[in-house]
Amino acid sequence: MSRPDRVIPIHPAPAPPSVVADALMREIAAALSRYAQDGQPHVIDLSAMPLSEDDTQRLDEQLGTGEVAIEIRSLLYTRVEETRYAGVWRVRHEDPDGSMRGEQIEITDIPEIVRASAADIGRSVQRLCADRAEEDA
């Protein structure tokens, strides 16, 4: 869309300081060192936090992007990305129409949602065998 002429001055409200981002980074650091010591994974749900735009930006900058990115196309569209710190993951869930439905930071080796569950694998075995049998027949 074309923007109207900007002859009207805008007075944006001063952004609140990004206190939440700092607190989050401290929590992530603590959780990661705990995970390194005793393998205790940790999840932080960002959707429940009062993040200002500045917070989000700061978080993006500090966490950065790492080597791995995974897309899950199931009921929702989920994007799993490792941050520049191995073991710290960002997991974002979106509706098919693109609206955000939840966002987490997970501190673990591989986020839970990526793993294939035993039940799913079991069903796959059955399906695969059935498909093979069909093919052979």
Binding site: M1, R3, P4, I8, P9, I10, H11, P12, A13
Partner: peptide, 22 residues
């Protein structure tokens, strides 16, 4: 909105709101 509106942004019909409308 407007040149002498000190309270610009105080109601939903501010620059952001008008851009949403557009």
């Amino acid at each position: 909105v407007g040149p002498d509106q000190k309270g610009a942004g105080a109601t939903a019909v501010n620059m952001t709101g008008l851009e949403i409308v557009h």
